[in-house]
Design a protein around this nucleic acid. Sequence first.
DNA 1: AAAAATTCAATCGCGCACAATCTTTATCGC
DNA 2: GCGATAAAGATTGTGCGCGATTGAATTTTT
Lengths: 163, 163
Amino acid sequence: MDEQTPPLPTAAPPATPSAPPKLDDQLCFALYSAGLALTKVYRPILEALDLTYPQYLAMMALWERDDIPVNALGAQLRLDSGTLTPLLKRLEARGLLQRRRDPEDERRVRVVLTEAGRSLGARASDIPLAIGQAAGMNREDARAERDRLVALRDRLEAFLDRE
Amino acid sequence: MDEQTPPLPTAAPPATPSAPPKLDDQLCFALYSAGLALTKVYRPILEALDLTYPQYLAMMALWERDDIPVNALGAQLRLDSGTLTPLLKRLEARGLLQRRRDPEDERRVRVVLTEAGRSLGARASDIPLAIGQAAGMNREDARAERDRLVALRDRLEAFLDRE
DNA sequence: AAAAATTCAATCGCGCACAATCTTTATCGC
DNA sequence: GCGATAAAGATTGTGCGCGATTGAATTTTT
């Protein structure tokens, strides 16, 4: 597919003495800067729910399915306990959820929504539409872009999990 | 796959009492999690240069053009002085750049690469190829995805700058 | 020219992300 | 049962990102 440049990753570099990469050429920077812009769009919207963006992601996962161990939530969100433990403690302090030791296995902490936490979900139902407007995308384009990014993420994660 | 829910983007919401959004449906989460995965792929590669990922982005901008004020660098990277000042101080402490007050306008601090900083650019020249391999993307697909993300970012930024 | 407004960088505080380390609990081998 | 190993989560330390504020330098207004 990319046959105009002979791959030869380890082959001799061209005559030019290895030029540094350029910021605006990089897919990584596009991903990075689009992510920053998106959280800036979310910030004022989430202010109404008094949630940060990662807190909103955690709540979304829990609205779908709660009473799960921290570990399972982390797998969905791609976050480890170093990030999740303090985040969940803040949400617990706000009365949106409870963290309970699992009696079946005392190593586990299960995350359970409170009534307040569950009812916040109804107030969040309009957010995707508002973001769609801000992004200037229709549903199909957003869905297609989401699928491409998920595919990219999955390939990157597969690479990280190699051997 | 998700066709049991009729689209109706701007139409009246259904009788169901406003269902909460779902994590895996969201473009925002795909962007977020792809970004996390990408920085995890970068981390071991950048370890060889002893740079964090945002430091690498800053150096990339400076390899292209240095002797610029902090706020010009921030405009390229989409970062403000609260983020850049400490980041640049760490790079200065490592001898990769210097921060100098501009004699023309004493409010400005100009960022100038040292010889060590400039020569690091040569050692970074192979990084994009390595990332391309990890992402399992050929050049054209990566370029097309980059362009779509830049377009998304630009629409989001335009929305943020409205009125 | 004096006052007001603006610009630029630095600083502070908060909340992620994540590596590394530690504690507690469970499970495996024997 | 008992020790070794593994697994889950908490803790600590570093480095972003960014809102808010501050202070100094410059520009604009009057």
